[in-house]
Amino acid sequence: MSTDADRVVLPSCPSTMTVARDGFAGYAGSTWVLALRQTGGHGRRGRPWANPRGAFTATLALPRPGTAQQAAQRSFVAALALFDAFVSVTGRPEGLSLKWPNDVLLNGGKVAGILLESLGPRPDGQLDGLLVGIGVNLIEPPDTGEVEPGALRPVALAQEGGVTVTPEEFLDALAPAFARHEAAFAAHGFAPIRRAWLDRAARLGEVITARLPGEEITGTFKTIDDLGYLQLQTKSGLRGIAAAEVFF
């Protein structure tokens, strides 16, 4: 993926994921869809995606992302790209960390989230495409009433980082950062992405709780494995978790 990915900037739309999905077949290559206002976005498990004033809401349409497992690992690629974009616009890495599986934290609060949606698969097991949805609180956080009980407090870049940028300016920092990490992923696989992500991981070595449908697992966050699965050391042994909500 090159740094000159196409971009589509919309004044408003219900969901950049929907626009990117509907337009995917017509894109010449990797394409960013950015909405200056999003009215009907959604997050994981269909939850409403809050859209506070001045928020960054965009979706990257990525063709030919490989297998479903490789597509899932783009969550870590996106997290690293977001980390670098925040450093680029603020000039400092302090206060930033990455929360498994798909959030970016600033001063301990959630400032950005990632949502993946696969397109395909083909008979050979490869996917036709991947949509990487990204939301960032640039100016103000969503109301706490819109946040799941027990979740981390939402924060905004302007509030916690002291920097005000427009969605277009943030995309100017994010797009090349994603392209850089995507190129590393394509050339070297998940191993360097995993190492870089772990260097920035929130609560590594600490006790956390993973909430699965019908089950909660508490243990020490040891690492992520070669697939990107969370590894928790529990009283009954090491437990690998492919997907869950994590609480501190």
Rank of each mutant, 00 (worst) to 15 (best):
S97A: 14
G133M: 13
P176V: 01
G108C: 13
N137V: 05
V77L: 12
L138W: 05
E146Y: 06
G189K: 01
A184L: 15
R64Q: 12
G54V: 08
W49E: 09
Q73A: 11
R45V: 03
P63V: 04
T144S: 15
A179S: 14
P101D: 07
W49K: 01
A72W: 07
S118N: 10
K110S: 02
F185Q: 04
P48H: 14
N51C: 13
R45F: 05
G120K: 03
P121V: 05
L152M: 09
G133Y: 13
D128E: 11
H181A: 06
A156Y: 09
G162D: 12
A68I: 03
V104L: 15
V136D: 11
A173V: 02
A173G: 04
A186R: 15
A112E: 06
G120F: 09
T166S: 15
P154W: 10
A58V: 04
N102H: 06
G109S: 08
R45G: 00
L62S: 02
L116T: 03
A179R: 01
S118Q: 11
E148K: 10
V147W: 03
F170L: 05
E168Y: 15
L116F: 06
A187V: 00
V89Q: 11
A71V: 01
R122N: 08
L119C: 03
P48A: 15
D124Q: 07
P93I: 11
D103M: 11
A175R: 03
V165L: 09
N107V: 00
P93R: 12
L171D: 06
P63C: 11
T57M: 15
A79S: 15
A151N: 02
F56Y: 01
D143M: 13
F83H: 12
K110Q: 02
P52C: 09
F170E: 10
G113V: 06
L60W: 06
A50R: 01
P141T: 10
P123M: 03
P149H: 12
L127I: 06
F76I: 01
L106D: 08
A177D: 04
S88M: 07
T67N: 08
V165Q: 07
A68S: 11
V163A: 11
S88W: 04
E182C: 12
A50I: 00
G161D: 06
F178S: 02
A81K: 08
A61R: 00
A183C: 09
W49T: 04
D128S: 05
Q159L: 14
F76M: 06
T166A: 14
